[in-house]
Design a protein around this nucleic acid. Structure first.
Lengths: 144, 144
DNA sequence: CCTGATTATCAGGCATACTTTAATACCTTC
DNA sequence: GAAGGTATTAAAGTATGCCTGATAATCAGG
């Protein structure tokens, strides 16, 4: 993730960065504040783990990192009680990493936090303004 | 800087993050590609250094970090030839950190890169769309 | 002119988020 | 059933971006 650009305080990119930083921290604070401690990097797991359980290598590929690095994230989440490792019935080398009930509550808290922030965006920008922001961002991302 | 939020791929915050990541890397790539190597953290210096030169402590306070940490950034920029330390004529304890001609060229390259990206945003979003995006972001940031 | 604050810097440490190397267990295929 | 590939894990290393503590020079006030 890059930093603020050199020079010129009010370019669009710097504003995007500040907005993201502002809201992103609110998510982490919200979820942690709701009683679900975690690190930002854990989202790499939460965002792609499947209900039936996911293999470590699959998670690593999906997050574009080494299986070893993903293994450490899973270790931490297991320690926190959010996921558990179960043997994969179809391959005895592999393990399935699956959410515990606490992990599901954590995800629910994350979704609730995000929805709360989005409602605040509706207030700040107006429902139409917020929709407009999303449309513009979508177009920007589509254009790559 | 936080990461992607847990869960839900298409919330506004995640879109902001992806947009920032996309464009932010383009800035670094652009400036480095123009022949001015640097690290993202160096922007903490470039963005606030004054033409007459700035004291280390002033830069550190402005970037909200310790003077030691700022000293290291200045070391690196001095090594790269972008800044130089000169004695402060008004205080023999202090040094003034000032841009070299190369440093000014680097800043110019940064500004040019940013302007190029902003022109691309004009193309992608339309001039009015881009202005609208900036207006929405400004309102978001003002509401804190 | 002594005292205490300020300026810069040296030295060492720490957290985050990865990496590579290597080992072990297991699968698949010839 | 041996060879080679895949899944996980342990161990150690790297890069970034900061920090605290201590030191030396200098300044400013009583």
């Amino acid at each position: 993730m890059p930093q603020d650009p050199p020079e010129q305080a009010d370019n669009t990119i710097a504003m995007l960065g500040r907005a993201y930083s502002l809201l992103g921290f609110q998510i982490v604070d919200g979820v942690v504040g709701a009683g679900y401690p975690q690190k930002p990097s854990h989202s790499a797991v939460f965002s792609q783990i499947r209900r039936e359980g996911s293999r470590l290598t699959a998670l690593a590929r999906g997050a574009n990192m080494s299986p070893q690095a993903m293994g450490e994230l899973v270790d931490e989440l297991e320690e926190l009680g959010y996921v558990e490792r179960k043997p994969d019935p179809t391959d005895r080398r592999a393990k399935l990493i699956a959410l515990t009930p606490l992990g599901e509550q954590c995800i629910a808290a994350g979704i609730a936090t995000i929805q709360g922030i989005e409602r605040r965006l509706d207030e700040i920008l107006g429902v139409r303004g917020h929709a407009s922001l999303r449309r513009l961002l979508a177009r920007l991302l589509a254009a790559g």
